[in-house]
Design a protein around this nucleic acid. Structure first.
Length: 537
DNA sequence: TCGCAGTTGGTGTT
DNA sequence: AACACCAACTGCGA
């Protein structure tokens, strides 16, 4: 036990030194400071049954990104005369033990709106206050405090971006400078009986070196985040003229966006600091784009989804989710797996799914393409299934934003124009007529002439032979015929919307079953056959 | 009740 | 590149 007063800084997200009010408060007026990260085996230990290398919750790319972020945090803490203390176990148990053992007087951690942390934090705060420990848990992950916004909107979250923007105005902290640097931190006290370790490597967590052939080109950590931020901000014209929907989803050597999302997800980069940098830049240019399409607009989108997610019970499900249209999605594991394993037979779709697996990141519009294809566009598979795959494989997967976007793309909420379907062939062609993106991520199609690379099943046999890629043998035939599949999807969406309107959203399991049967009966036999033959040309 | 707006569709024309 | 047209949804505010 240490003499003198001790504070414990509990890192979860917010893996940074800059703009970290919890860390700043923890370091003030304390004789000892314990900076802690708890590795929860449920999140980190290898799961051999998962469909990709990684734990039961996270793909290896994100685990690696997290470990890199922790190492960087450790070295940044060391520059301030401290270090990161890594502990293992169920977080609330580990924390309770540390609080006792180190006689902690003050516990600090960034507030988190996700259901997982909401539940965990209730436990931890309960213990701390019973023991008379001061708890400081500021909101610093987002620009605004979602709870404030919801309160100011009469207890309900705003459900459109425009109404959100109108409501929030400028962030309250923007007029006073953020605390970007710390000069030093109090020393660490004695560990007592608590078992402390260094930041582990992926191998130390039990992962084989050979488990992944190509891994994400994006390296975790605050230092990398700030470097990337500076590189983006230096391109003044590019930032000022940024229009999200105009980006090129097929650009991979130089992505069309900042790729700061994974750093925002783990809090390696403060969204508030990013926002201030953008405002500074905007002040110094002749003209600049505006929300929703501007870069600052992207940060507002992030806050928008955080706010709606926080204020909507069962946000991550269809059932019991008041803002989610009830739609009789298919339960087709075969189609889901084809999508997940990049075997749909649509090169544009499959290349994106390979990039997801290898890089843990792809362009926003590429995500739109594959999400639309899986759900309302072609396969009519439940958005929750696609959400699970993204949640596991994306290095930037963020609970509120990922669920929000799946609700959006599946036309379950926020966006309702289900007639607008991304073509799994022409959408990509428009940006990359030569198919370089496909050639890179699907080398099996490397030699396919550009006339056929988006629809290789239409290539004559002689061309397939010459390209050393026989469709049906070296690369799959398409799992659906897009024309008939998308027509059928539209028909189902129309019926489902009509039912939701008729029952004013109160659609029961039974209503959905009945609709499923009706849709089955009404389906024109020729469409059905074509669809079920799973394929063609 | 009506008209309008909504970050990012597809296709065809100029 | 910019526009019209297609076919047409919802939520919101007047």
């Amino acid at each position: 036990m240490s003499s003198g007063s001790s504070s414990l800084m509990w890192f979860r997200k917010g893996l940074r030194i800059h703009d970290n009010p919890a860390l700043e408060y923890a370091s003030k007026g304390s004789d000892f400071l314990y900076p802690v990260f708890v590795i929860d085996p449920h999140y980190m230990k290898p799961d051999p049954d998962a469909f990709s290398p990684g734990s039961s919750k996270a793909g290896l790319n994100r685990i690696r990104f997290l470990l890199e972020s922790l190492s960087d945090l450790d070295s940044n803490l060391k520059k301030l005369g401290s270090r990161l203390l890594v502990l293992k176990g169920e977080p609330s148990e580990v924390l309770n033990r540390c609080l006792k053992e180190w006689d902690v007087k003050r516990l600090c951690f960034e507030y988190d709106t996700e259901p997982y942390y909401q539940a965990l934090d209730v436990k931890v705060k309960g213990y701390a206050s019973a023991a008379g420990i001061e708890v400081f848990s500021p909101v610093s992950h987002t620009l605004f405090n979602p709870a404030d916004i919801i309160r100011r909107n009469g207890g309900r979250p705003p459900l459109t971006y425009q109404s959100f923007v109108k409501l929030v105005g400028d962030p309250s902290w923007a007029s006073s400078p953020l605390s970007i640097t710390l000069s030093s931190l109090p020393p660490i006290g004695s560990f007592g009986r608590c078992e402390i370790s260094e930041v582990p490597t992926v191998e130390e967590l039990g992962y084989e070196k050979t488990q992944q052939d190509e891994h994400s080109p994006f390296k975790g950590g605050e230092s990398e985040a700030l470097k990337k931020l500076r590189e983006s901000i230096e391109k003044k014209e590019w930032v000022a003229n940024f229009e999200k929907p105009k980006g090129d989803p097929s650009a991979f050597l130089t992505p069309a966006t900042t790729v700061l999302s994974p750093y925002l997800k783990f809090g390696c980069l403060s969204s508030r600091y990013f926002y201030i940098c953008l405002q500074d830049l905007y002040k110094n240019v002749k003209s600049h784009t505006s929300p929703p399409v501007s870069l600052a607009g992207q940060l507002l989108w992030r806050d928008f989804f955080y706010t709606v997610a926080f204020g909507t019970p069962n946000f991550d499900r269809m059932r019991g989710n008041k803002i989610c249209k009830q739609i009789p999605w298919n339960d087709d594991d075969e189609l889901l797996q084809a999508w997940r394993e990049a075997r749909t037979g649509f090169p544009w779709i499959d290349a994106i799914m390979i990039q997801l697996r290898k890089w843990g990141w792809m362009h926003h519009l590429a995500r739109h393409s594959v999400a639309c294809f899986l759900t309302r566009g072609d396969l009519f598979v439940h958005w929750e299934k696609g959400r699970d795959v993204f949640e596991r494989l994306l290095i930037d997967s963020d609970w509120a934003i990922n669920n929000g976007n799946w609700l959006w793309l599946s036309c379950s909420s926020f966006f309702y124009q289900y007639n607008r379907i991304y073509s799994p062939t022409s959408f990509g062609k428009k940006y990359d007529p030569n198919g370089d993106y496909i050639r890179h991520f699907l080398p099996v199609l490397k030699e396919m002439p550009k006339e056929y690379i988006y629809e290789p099943w239409t290539a004559p046999e002689s061309i397939q032979k010459k390209a050393k890629c026989i469709i049906g043998r070296d690369y799959p035939k398409p799992v659906v015929a897009h024309d008939s599949a998308s027509k059928e999807c539209k028909r189902r969406m129309a019926e489902a919307y009509a039912l939701n309107q008729k029952l004013t959203g109160l659609v029961s399991e039974e209503d959905l079953r009945n609709l499923r049967r009706k849709l089955e009966e009404d389906e024109k036999p020729e469409v059905k056959n074509k669809r079920q033959r799973k394929l063609i040309g």
